[in-house]
Design a protein around this nucleic acid. Sequence first.
DNA 1: GAATATGTTTTAAATGTTTCAAAGTTTACA
DNA 2: TGTAAACTTTGAAACATTTAAAACATATTC
Lengths: 333, 333
Amino acid sequence: MATISEIAKEANVSRTLVSRVLNNKPGVSPENRQRILDVMKKHNYVPNGLARALVLQKTMTIGVVMDDLCNDFFFDLISGLQDTGEAHDYNMLFCSGRKDIATRMKYVDYFAQGRTDGIIAYGSNREDEELFRSIAAKSVNCVLIEGSLDGCKINQILLDNFHGAYTATEHLIKQGHRNIIHITNDMNYDVSLERLNGFVQAMHDYRIPLGPDSIIYADCFEQTACQQMRRLIAEGKKPDACFVGADKPAYGVLRAAMEAGLSIPNDLAVIGFDDDTPESRDIVFPGLSTMRQPLYEMGKAGVELLLDAIANPGREAQTRTFEAELILRDTCR
Amino acid sequence: MATISEIAKEANVSRTLVSRVLNNKPGVSPENRQRILDVMKKHNYVPNGLARALVLQKTMTIGVVMDDLCNDFFFDLISGLQDTGEAHDYNMLFCSGRKDIATRMKYVDYFAQGRTDGIIAYGSNREDEELFRSIAAKSVNCVLIEGSLDGCKINQILLDNFHGAYTATEHLIKQGHRNIIHITNDMNYDVSLERLNGFVQAMHDYRIPLGPDSIIYADCFEQTACQQMRRLIAEGKKPDACFVGADKPAYGVLRAAMEAGLSIPNDLAVIGFDDDTPESRDIVFPGLSTMRQPLYEMGKAGVELLLDAIANPGREAQTRTFEAELILRDTCR
DNA sequence: GAATATGTTTTAAATGTTTCAAAGTTTACA
DNA sequence: TGTAAACTTTGAAACATTTAAAACATATTC
């Protein structure tokens, strides 16, 4: 690989002139400019980005640390991040922790070693707090998506899960449902806890008592929720509405209900969360009503927040909160 | 951000000693080591990765340029790449061209400017040849996945699409089918063309004539193939077997066939390609027989080929070809 | 007490860029 | 012809690290 010095030597000029040609700057005679260009082309010269970033103290790169790249749930977020970053001439680099927190930590460190101008990290698990604290401790521009960190000054993009869950539950109540259950995920997720709280608060505000089967624990996949719903039906429990903490388990609920011959939404109304519908679900399932999480917009806002932080070094950390939107389809009036 | 010089100054030693402590090397007195560690901790010192990479001429980073990160088809490939890279202590950075070739080119350049030890690029579109030629022209260690480049010495991981298609078609023939059609994708894809050729060759070898409806053009999604199949059925055409160039359109075929009340596989046998089944398809569709494309293994092999190229600078470019495997499920005996 | 060995520390050069300041050259004009 | 202005070119420092070689200090051996 040729270096700027070699090009300079062969063209019989100083490094300075080569650098000017490289960056399309004035201050080079036409003859020299042409000769330098020729030599560059001859050697297939590519300037070294590391050296350049080192001296410029600027990488024009944003590193994104995802929990998992192999999850279609993140497609909209990834698109929002990439589109917005590239619109501002930044290079967007993605990496994945493969659900492993140590790996994510490793990549955060990697990016923080001067290799990026800023970091965007996603995480919603309670265990992620450790990761977030370590990021916050570094003197690196950073934005957290979904991951909240109380008492720490760090840029955050959040979804108001509590309010979203409240809205969904309230809607079911206003539709006249009283025997409403909530299917939630592992309490390791802040997100799940907040949604659960929103459900409980709405039920409380409307004076609807919670029974022992009002809250059902499943996970974020279709299978477990389906089994739980089957069990409930087998036990003769007859909820007339179900607010599920995510869309994938909501499909599990629908499946169990349809197997049991229940009419949707007459016998059972269902509202999910996320608006995360894999194509082809609509073939077999009715359209799922859900709380849409604006992931694309959240990604966009994340990059904008980061760029703002980069441009204003002293500025205080900010938090932007998005609201989920109720999308009514077939599973709920 | 503190630098090594600042740490050295505050600890009253030379940069060399700080560097040794940083890299856990001997040659530092215990007292100095401790003092340096204390100063580092106090300033939250993080060494600059760019400077380090510049002097070491080694980044321990592999850049992966995908056609599109937001496509579940690539999950296995991404996993294979990341697992294998990290098993060799490399940092795996992913970026996406968002189906845009100029963006992919930009990221290849970016990675090639000394920021990585090697590049892995995916591409199967005919137009990608331009991209590949530009990569091949650079003096950068590189492996192409799926993208073949005739007459150019470049490391490649390929799938034998011709042979896979031949195997699928031959299987249908040996099961006694004679009225076999092939649904193919846009001919901009080498992959599609090779699979089409495999189909044609098998039909030819077994002396089965091709009719005007033997080859149907669709795309790589469910919708178009479904419409084409509906049209065929409406026109009274009665193929008894269908080899589809990819799994997603194969589901479209199944859908149209099931709508028309055809029995699978008795009335119509179907074989797809890729083994790219989104979860939940199995609820409504019978298990799709397909030619499994070993994407995880191909990713693994890609990284291994790249690491080999990095370790042996002079070595000639290699090509590794994988075979697709016939997976028999419900849509074909 | 000198020679040798061992251990510690520093100096200086190297990695590949950019850029400020200074110096050199040409042109324009009085 | 002298001088200012404009343009061109170069040298050197800077960015943050690593490392070979040199320098220095202390301990061991004969």
